[in-house]
């Protein structure tokens, strides 16, 4: 049955080469922990992606309850955490995932760095990887404000002060982030929400796509 459905689609769209391009390749011995246990260091990149998937999914479920408004944001998070079935688990996954993804990405970066895997011809992929790192830090920064509790507000005030101390463009940058020259309030929350939920994930998915495309194109770096 499934084969028939597949054939029906394949006959019209020729989809076989698409997934063959993604899946048809050999995994060399030196990255396979089944052959050399020390090759577990090659898992960090994949686990980073795994946590990103967890973040995207848990974030989608969080947005079913979250209200980006200064009067209701905290109430909605409190309700989600204390009243909704498994709400605490979903919020916990998003909260802890944000930390674990940084840890995994840090380890992955160190693996690539100390193996010199960023050398020619893989310079571009390293740059995309570091950009992913920056986007991830920005996601952590903007997500910290969203529960609208005491630490969220005060940490964001510090962040905005630092942004404001940028030479030349400081005031503009602060206004861009907080939505007002002086007030850290309703508009700051909606801006951080938009950045956290739309702008940065879009950038992240694009960069991750490039990252994977380049890995498929270049193959994994050889043994040391």
């Amino acid at each position: 049955m499934l084969n028939k459905v597949y054939d029906w689609i394949d006959e019209r769209l020729d989809i076989t080469p698409l997934w063959r391009d993604v899946a048809d390749h050999e995994v060399p011995e030196h990255v396979n922990p089944a052959h050399h246990f020390s090759a577990f260091v090659y898992c960090f990149g994949g686990l980073t992606f795994f946590v990103v998937v967890i973040q995207v999914l848990s974030g989608m479920f969080l947005s079913m309850y979250y209200v980006p408004d200064i009067e209701r944001a905290w109430e909605s998070v409190y309700y989600l955490q204390n009243q909704v079935a498994f709400g605490q688990i979903v919020r916990g996954m998003h909260h802890w995932g944000a930390s674990i993804v940084i840890v995994m990405m840090f380890l992955h970066t160190l693996r690539v760095f100390f193996q010199g895997a960023y050398k020619k011809p893989r310079e571009l992929n390293w740059i995309v990887g570091v950009l992913i790192f920056f986007v991830m830090l920005a996601l952590g920064l903007t997500g910290y404000l969203l529960p609208w509790d005491m630490k969220a507000l005060n940490a964001t005030k510090v962040t905005l002060d630092i942004a404001q101390s940028t030479p030349l463009i400081g005031d503009m940058l602060k206004t861009l982030l907080s939505g007002d020259e002086h007030i850290v309030g309703a508009e700051t929350l909606t801006r951080f929400f938009a950045i956290h939920v739309f702008f940065l994930p879009a950038a992240l998915l694009g960069l991750i796509g490039l990252h994977f495309l380049m890995i498929r194109k270049q193959g994994i770096s050889g043994p040391l």
Binding site: Y78, A152, L153
Partner: peptide, 10 residues
């Protein structure tokens, strides 16, 4: 469990 402090009080 994920922490949640009291509501932001400017």
């Amino acid at each position: 469990p994920p922490p949640l402090e009291r509501i932001a009080d400017p």
